[in-house]
Amino acid sequence: MRTRASLILRTTVPVLLPLFFVFAVFIFMRGHNEPGGGFSAGLVASAAFALTTVAFGPEAGRRALGLAPRVYLGAGLLVAGVSVALPVAMGEAFGKGLWTSITVLGRELKVGTPLAFDLGVLLVVVGTAAGIVFAFAEERD
């Protein structure tokens, strides 16, 4: 990008980023019984990368993302795929939701294949959205 983004944006984005991620986690966990889930959480998380790109350029966006968007896409598909195929390996119906609970910090937490599937969706959404944003941002240069 030729012109630098406004000072306000460059100052607020680093503060906002953690909030985006916390909010994404919140939406992700809420999604099991209420509106939310992997898709909207993925969009919120990718908004963070998009903002970074707008404020500091696509290179900073890519640095924040860490891995190539393609890897997020592939990993997401793989996680989602494993989560629906896993029940078959355990003698259950294809795509059946299997649940178990683990104790984290003294609190009981239910985890299961639907959660893993949602995580896969999240990764796919982040990979896709970030890929699109980077492609547009880099095209202008």
């Binding site: 890897v71 997401g76 598909l77 793989l78 795929g81």
Partner: peptide, 10 residues
């Protein structure tokens, strides 16, 4: 799964 694998092998 193949689509995922193709994306991952790069």
């Amino acid at each position: 799964a193949a689509a995922a694998a193709c994306l991952l092998v790069g």
